[in-house]
Structure formats: C-alpha cells, structure tokens
Amino acid sequence: MAESPKYPELGEALPPAYPSEGTREMLRRRRSCPADFMTGPGPDAAQLEDILAIAARVPDHRRVVPFRFIVFEGAARAEFGAVLKDAFLKNEPEADDTKAVYEENRFLRAPVVVAVISKPDRSHRTPEWEQVLCAGAVCHNMLLAASAHGFAAQWLTEWYAYDEKVLGALGLAMGEKVAGFVYIGTASEDPKERGRPEMASIISRWSR
C-alpha cells in the first residue's frame, strides 16, 4: 500500500525553494492533453484527494479561499450529461441527434472531471481580481498535480461554463463562476506541441 502523503503542519518551517531539474523539465514540456484523447484509468480516491490538495496550495492573499471543487466521476458524469443535453437543446432546438448526443457525452470523455468554482468574497478587503486569479492558479496547479501523478489533464470552460441552466444544476451561488472544468484521465495518444509565444515579444524591462 502506498504511503499517505505528508502535508506540512501549521507553522512548520518550509524550504523556500525545491531545486529540481525533473520539475523544470516537466514545466518546459507541459502540454494539456485534449479531453477527446483521454480514456481510463483515472486517479483512484487517494490520488484524486492528493491532486485536489495540491491544487489548493496556491497563493491566496489573506487566505480567503475563493474557490471550491465539484467532482464528477462514475455514473455522475452521465447523469450530468442529461443536464448538458437539455441545456444544449434549449439553446439549439434545431440541432440534430448527433450533436445532442455529443453534448450529452462530454463528461464521459475522461474518468474524472473537476469543476473549479471561483467564489470571490466581495466584502473582503482582498481585491476581487486577486481572488479570481487565485482560482485560475488552482486550475493550473491541478494540471501539474495530475501530471505528477502520471495522468493527462485538460482545463476547459466551453459553452456550458456560462449557461444559466447548467450553472443552476451545479448549484452555484450568486457571484460564483466556473473557473474551469479539469478533465483527468489517461492519454490514448500523445498530444503534439502547439505554438508558443515568441519570448522577446512579451518581455520588457522597466527603466526611467
């Protein structure tokens, strides 16, 4: 049996850095895997718990915790697919059966789908924009944690992250938004490298 991961205790002194060529190489080659390329297996209960715990270890000014998770696995993926299909057909009543079935099966593309919900506290003195950025960092941390556990992952929104009927079925409160749906599974094929920014075009150095 794998040993349970050890997390720091409150107030424990932690190293300020973890020099690791392996980590640097993973980050240089990090690539999302399209959900359409995924299959099983996905993370087991212990692996998923660790992935979520790592995802939550993000910069969070004044510890607002402006995010939460909704996990879809097993039969819940197909059950939520019925919600997606109904919402899609409400928006596109003339759509044919092929398109409707594709929407219904979206969450079946991967063994696990995690909705990361942004829930900024507008009454808190930490600026709302910082809280929103925190939820985005959670999504990226989850991609890295899944990769470190040996799984492919993709952070998506797609139309259903903005649909009122879908958001209602998710039980989102006023002011909450979907930061992303993170699909986690095993890649059926290797994703290819995509275009990256020309670094010289996005770097400047300030001076008087």
Rank of each mutant, 00 (worst) to 15 (best):
M1Q: 14
A2K: 08
Y7Q: 06
G11H: 02
A13N: 01
L14D: 08
A17R: 04
R24E: 13
M26A: 02
R30S: 12
S32K: 02
S32L: 12
G42S: 07
A45L: 14
A45D: 15
A45Q: 11
L48M: 05
E49S: 15
I54R: 06
A55D: 05
R57D: 03
H61R: 05
R62L: 13
V64S: 02
V65C: 09
P66V: 01
F67E: 08
R68V: 04
I70F: 00
V71G: 09
A75V: 05
E79Y: 05
E79T: 13
A82Y: 02
A82F: 02
L84F: 11
D86W: 08
A87V: 04
L89E: 05
K90F: 13
D97S: 09
K99N: 09
K99H: 06
A100M: 07
Y102P: 06
R106S: 08
R109C: 11
A110Q: 12
P111E: 02
V112P: 00
V114D: 01
V116H: 03
I117W: 00
K119I: 03
D121Y: 07
R122C: 10
H124A: 14
T126L: 11
P127F: 10
E130R: 05
Q131P: 01
V132W: 09
L133I: 10
C134K: 00
G136T: 05
V138E: 12
L144N: 08
A145W: 02
S147Y: 01
S147T: 14
Q154H: 06
T157R: 13
A161G: 04
Y162V: 02
A173L: 12
M174Y: 14
G180A: 03
F181K: 04
G185F: 04
S188T: 10
E189W: 01
P191R: 00
P191G: 03
K192M: 13
E193Q: 12
G195T: 14
E198I: 15
E198D: 15
M199P: 05
M199E: 14
M199R: 08
